[in-house]
């Protein structure tokens, strides 16, 4: 049962990522990315990280992708047709890469596990409780938290400054 759910999420993740590259329109790409994001959130659920999974859905699906679609609708959808043979070649390459990654995943993971602090991948109980994230964020990573807060503030100011129509041009437009 769990394996079946895992493969559904895996297919969503990778298929969605592929869809971003292969669908001709913007909105199609955004919707493929939505599928991919939901798949990733599902994978996070499978590994027991409930809080990041739902924050992920909330941030990416609820805000980032809606923003993408909004801008796409402002700019107007365009079709960027990809030639069929290129699409096919890309698909083959991608599948080959996927196969290699899938083949070497156990080796990769055992190498990574030999570097882990505990030495073995196992229980992830700490990730399941939402409160732990709060403690980790405000105890161990306070500086990083403050810096990302500052970054968000700077981004907000920057966005408003960039996207706002300059006062001069607005006045000129009103005069015409």
């Amino acid at each position: 049962m769990e394996a079946a759910v895992y493969y559904v999420f895996l297919a969503m993740t990778l298929g969605g990522a592929l869809g971003v590259l292969l669908t001709p329109g913007y909105v199609g790409a955004a919707m493929s990315m939505l599928a991919s994001m939901l798949g990733v959130a599902g994978l996070m659920l499978m590994m027991g990280a409930y809080f990041p999974a739902f924050v992920m859905i909330s941030v990416y699906a609820g805000a980032v992708l809606v923003l993408f679609v909004f801008v796409v609708m402002l700019v107007g959808d365009a079709h960027e047709p990809v030639r069929l043979w290129r699409k096919f070649a890309f698909l083959v390459l991608w599948a080959a890469a996927g196969a290699v990654v899938g083949l070497y995943a156990p080796e990769m993971s055992s190498w990574a596990e030999s570097k882990l602090a505990s030495g073995v991948s196992g229980s992830s109980g700490a990730l399941e409780v939402a409160k732990n994230y709060g403690y980790a964020m405000f105890k161990n990573n306070m500086l990083a938290f403050q810096i990302s807060g500052l970054l968000l503030l700077a981004a907000m100011v920057g966005v408003i400054a960039v996207a706002k129509e300059p006062a001069v041009r607005k006045r000129r437009r009103e005069m015409v």
Partner: peptide
Amino acid sequence: FAAANGDVNGGVYALFVMA
């Protein structure tokens, strides 16, 4: 990696990446 390590700090970094 956070889940494999049982360490919640990796999860917090993921939240920062989201921001």
